[in-house]
Nucleic acid binder design. Sequence first.
DNA 1: ATGTCGTTTTGTAAACGA
Length: 268
Amino acid sequence: MKIATFNVNGINGRLAVLLRWLEEARPDAVCLQELKAPDARFPIRAIEQAGYGAIWHGQKSWNGVAILALGREPIETRRGLPGDPDDEQARYIEAAVEGLLIGCLYLPNGNPAPGAKFDAKRRWFARLAAHAAELLALDVPVILAGDYNVMPTELDVYKPERWVDDALFRPEVRAAFHALIAQGWTDALRARHPDARLYTFWDYLRHAFARDAGLRLDHLLLSPKLAPRLSAAGVDRAVRSWEKASDHAPAWIELAPARAARRRKPAG
DNA sequence: ATGTCGTTTTGTAAACGA
C-alpha cells in the first residue's frame, strides 16, 4: 500500500500537475495541503475521473486539506483539530482508509518569528501533539502526514545556518517535532534513509530547485503498530521540475500487507 | 534583502501569504 503527502499550492491552479502525478504514481491514499479553494471549488469530478474518492476541508484563498483514496471513499473521522473552537483555518482532516487511520495536516508557517504568527504555530503544534497522543492511545494503525512546516534536523536544510531564526527551523519548533516523535511515532522517510539529504520543498525564488536549495518540510509519521510494515519511502522530486509545479514535491511511503508484520525475525 | 508563485478584489494591478 502506497501513501503520499503533497502540498499542491492551489489545487485548481495545479490540477494538471496533480492529475499527471496521480496517473504516474498511483498512490493508494494521498494527503493534500494548500488547496487554496473553498469547498465548492474542489475539483471532485476530475479527481473521481482519475479513480479516486475524496474528502476535503476547504477555505477561500488559503489553507485547505484533503484525503484521496484509490478506488474507494475515505471514511471521514474528523474535520479540524480539537482544542480551539475559535480556529477556523482548514488545516486538518482525518479519515479511515483500508483499515488505516490517516490524519492529514497543514501546520502554520509561523513567520515572522518571533511574533503572533509564531505563537499561533506553537499553539497549533501543541494541539496536534495532544491529538496525536489520543490517536496513539487507540492502539490502531495511524499515519499522520502532511506539511509540518518544520525541518527536523540540520540534515533537512540545504544551508542550516541561514535558517536558525526562521519559524520553520527555530529551536522551539524543532523541539516540538522531536517531542511528537518521542510519543512513539516514526519519521518514515528518515527511518528508511538515515543519512540522505532528502528535500520536499524548493522555493520559487532564486532558482532554488536548480541549486537544490531545498528543505524537508513534508513528513509521514507512523504509529508503532504501523512502523514495522514500512518497506520503502521516497520523494517524487521530478514533479517539482514540471511546468506549473508546486513549490513542494510529493513524499511517499510503501507499507507491506498487515500480515507480513507478524512474521518476526529471531533477535540478533 | 532577494524575488516567484496562487489567490482575491472598492478587479485586468496590487495586496497578501508562503
